[in-house]
């Protein structure tokens, strides 16, 4: 679907994206994770043609994206802030604009979504709360039916029921009209079941890319007496450690071999799973 080759973006002295190679096949829901400033928004903006690549390439089905209407008309990026209109614009007018400019936009679906989020065509953008604005962004994004639809922090400021509606509508429409989604989020535990694959961006580079379900088995927490734990984890990829008195917990990355598990049992060490969010925190430098 969309690929990047050696993609770099710089803002003055700061490098936002650093020689990024990415290949996202079509028809999946990708989760884009990363700490603040990791480059998520820059990546999404560049993929959508909102920003010119500093160097390197962004191709949609083999065609350059930037300033290419054949590509951009098949991409929709909804960002956490702006790009839909002014405060005085009515939601109905914004949706009419979307219909006029985007071939794939489905106005009937947009109306149904507005209804589900409790919004009306007559409201103005400026009168909406933070969460309602996010909901309206979701309406525009889903109703675009763009083959590549991306949301940057789609659910910012939305309450739990709103986020649940988003999840339901996303999955239902994804099944009915299969397409590619990229969702960036900080709500890892809540949103990750929606993803097929997770991409973790760290300091402008792709740190990890893995099926969500595999990621759930990637980390192991080893707990026990400090000296025994230290011996056990020698040679393993250690992500982080914490101590409580004589007891130590070390998070290691990667599946353990069966003989390792037996050795752990033999020494009375506990082996526990690591949640995706904890793994994310450890992988991106801990706290």
């Amino acid at each position: 679907m969309i690929t990047t080759t050696d993609l770099c973006v710089r803002y003055g002295e700061t490098t936002a994206l650093d020689a990024l190679d990415l290949d996202l096949p079509a028809g999946r829901i990708y989760g884009l994770l990363g700490r603040n400033g990791a480059g998520k928004t820059t990546l999404l903006s560049t993929l959508a043609g909102f920003r010119k690549p500093g160097s390197g390439r962004v191709l949609l089905d083999g065609e350059p994206v930037f300033e290419n209407p054949r590509a951009t008309s098949r991409i929709c990026l909804i960002r956490e802030e702006g790009g839909l209109g002014d405060g005085i614009d009515r939601l109905g007018d914004i949706l009419d604009m979307a219909r006029a400019l985007r071939k794939t936009h489905d106005q009937g679906y947009a109306a149904a979504l507005l209804d589900r989020f409790g919004l009306s065509r007559r409201q103005t953008l400026g009168s909406l709360s933070r969460g309602q604005r996010s909901a309206f962004g979701i309406v525009v994004g889903l109703a675009s039916r763009a083959p590549l639809t991306m949301f940057d922090e789609a659910h910012l400021g939305m309450d739990a029921p709103g986020r649940r509606i988003f999840a339901d509508e996303l999955l239902a429409d994804y099944v009915a009209h299969p397409r590619t989604f990229v969702l960036s989020t900080h709500l890892i535990e809540e949103q990750s079941p929606l993803f097929e694959q997770v991409l973790i961006l760290h300091r402008g580079r792709l740190l990890l890319r893995e099926d969500v379900d595999d990621l759930r088995t990637r980390g192991v927490a080893v707990t026990g007496p400090a000296t025994l734990v230290d011996d056990f984890v020698t040679g393993l990829t250690v992500l982080g450690e914490r101590s409580l008195g004589p007891t130590k917990e070390v998070t290691v990355y990667g599946a353990l071999a069966e003989q390792d598990r037996q050795a752990a049992r033999l020494h009375g060490l506990q082996l526990g799973p690591v949640a995706v969010q904890d793994l994310f925190i450890h992988l991106t430098g801990g706290v």
Partner: peptide, 17 residues
């Protein structure tokens, strides 16, 4: 799988697996 995915709010590929 679709019904499972919708019911549990999970990715359909996960249900298919």
């Amino acid at each position: 799988t679709t019904q499972y995915a919708a019911y549990y709010r999970i990715n359909p590929a996960t249900a298919a697996k």
